[in-house]
Amino acid sequence: MMETVFTPLQSLGGGALIGLAAVLLMATLGRVMGATGIVTGLMQPANLGDWTWRAALLAGMISGPAAFLLLSGQMPEIQVPASTSMLIIGGLIVGIGVTFGSGCTSGHGVCGMARLSPRSIVATLTFMFTTAITVFVIRHLIGG
């Protein structure tokens, strides 16, 4: 099991930046800042103009760690407890789940909850619950 340090200030500040990005995207392009919707739209664009802003947004997201490196002198820490097969199985399941569920932590959990959308509130409570159950099963029932 990998230990991590509780970082209330960085997490609050990072969260505020995530919120700022969501507000800016709504104020300018009028779009929801949901990772699922953005990549799904990239694979199935309505037209070229719809594809290019999503590609630019994704390029910006991927530049995030480099910006972090410039500011802090190091890459963001990434510790992966999952094996390669768990990453593949988990990735497939995430892709299937967010497609049927119409969103993920950013779309439902931040943007939808901020609008008090009943669908997003129910979706967020549901995936937070099943994630917690899954982590409990893997770490304390199977892993021990």
Partner: peptide
Amino acid sequence: LSYVIGLVFGLGISISGMANPA
């Protein structure tokens, strides 16, 4: 604008620690 907004999001994820699965 899209690039800068994505960058703000990606930087927020990086600072918050949410890029780290552990």
